[in-house]
Design a protein around this nucleic acid. Sequence first.
DNA 1: CGTTGCTTTGATGCCCGTCAATGATTGTGG
DNA 2: CCACAATCATTGACGGGCATCAAAGCAACG
Lengths: 230, 230
Amino acid sequence: MTIAVRTVSSSATPIAPLGGAPDEGLNALQAIGTVVRFARNATIFNDGDDADYSYRLISGTVRLCKLMSDGRRQIAEFPVAGDFFGLEWLDTHAFTAEALTDVIAVRYLRSRLDRLGRERGDVQRSLMTRLSHDLWAAQNHLVMLGRQTARERVVSFILALAERAGATGGGTLDVPMSRQDIADYLGLTIETVCRTISDLKRQRLIDVPNRTEIVVRDIEKLRDIAEGDF
Amino acid sequence: MTIAVRTVSSSATPIAPLGGAPDEGLNALQAIGTVVRFARNATIFNDGDDADYSYRLISGTVRLCKLMSDGRRQIAEFPVAGDFFGLEWLDTHAFTAEALTDVIAVRYLRSRLDRLGRERGDVQRSLMTRLSHDLWAAQNHLVMLGRQTARERVVSFILALAERAGATGGGTLDVPMSRQDIADYLGLTIETVCRTISDLKRQRLIDVPNRTEIVVRDIEKLRDIAEGDF
DNA sequence: CGTTGCTTTGATGCCCGTCAATGATTGTGG
DNA sequence: CCACAATCATTGACGGGCATCAAAGCAACG
């Protein structure tokens, strides 16, 4: 559940430098956002809810997922600081958003976002670029789920974590999501994910000091595996 | 390869009533488009090409796909008349677009589309809605590839064809794509697709008069199967 | 220190991929 | 118009990769 909600004063935390590319016309968004917090495991919105709000993550990690009627789950994305979600220009949300860790985000009333987009073409185009990026990511995800082996998927996931961490971290990756979350993102079972990670560890391609950290030891070989060599 | 290219006269074929919702501000697009034709199996653009153009399909069917280095293929979408593709607001195309049948489309120079979007907020928002719809579709596709069985996927595909055909056709669906295309869309092999279709035929849920047609005989039961019952 | 929830490992089986052969359809040249 | 090739679709036999079922570690919490 929501822990606290308060309005952003106009001079509050600048959002631009958070993540992603240094963004064009998004500073204008600061004026219309509200900071909201969610506890770990809180639901931010549900699949099918009226899409009254869009969000931008300040800190923490979120999972965007879809549930089938019998409980099968597919995670579409794990937004991190700087990412938008629930941005789709539709009447209802297309997925459920849940806080994977404690989360701080900025919430934008859709109607105000719409109006701002109308007034400021640069904002509109900036949001469009975000949306395009999400579509691009989803299409790569399709390739993974449709055509990669379990081993390739797990390795691709680790490499994606590594890229997202970028220069920071010095090879030690933070893994905020559970094994089950990873499995649901990769379209596998938790057992297959575990076994594959153990295999990679045994081959000294990674280290796994604990359940929330992975150390990349041979990124070149990992890249080969992700591409289908081996 | 391209067969013919000619400029649209301003009084040429109105595009709005083709497919999808009766669209808001898209009539303005007619002024800046060029009609292009592609022969069956022609490549419209390639994954990674500079995204100089976006397209709207007038007639025929297209496949949007991604290839892995070893030849594995995943099809992301089969646009039909009225659909846009290559609309992503990025520098390069995210996938390859190929003509599945002979195709007529309208081609928009990206820079002109961009300028029109700048001048007309309604156009920009309309394109944004299209993009959002594509993202929504991709996320449903993720669930299919990640969490549905072969049987569920094939049935979902047939149901999607049926919905797209809508009232027209009276139960007989046109299937312009090959079995291999279907397999690559569903993340399966051609053999599994064939076997599953044959099963459905044996159970009298569908008829398959020839390779390009499917007749739905029991849509209720098909819906049950797609949802995971049985 | 026992409980609770998550992770890991093992044993087994099945769904679907692979390999192979046959059948059906389309296109081409004589 | 037919013969032939080329392509695509279908069916069968078989095996492997991943899911399922089960149990044992392991860390966080009271």
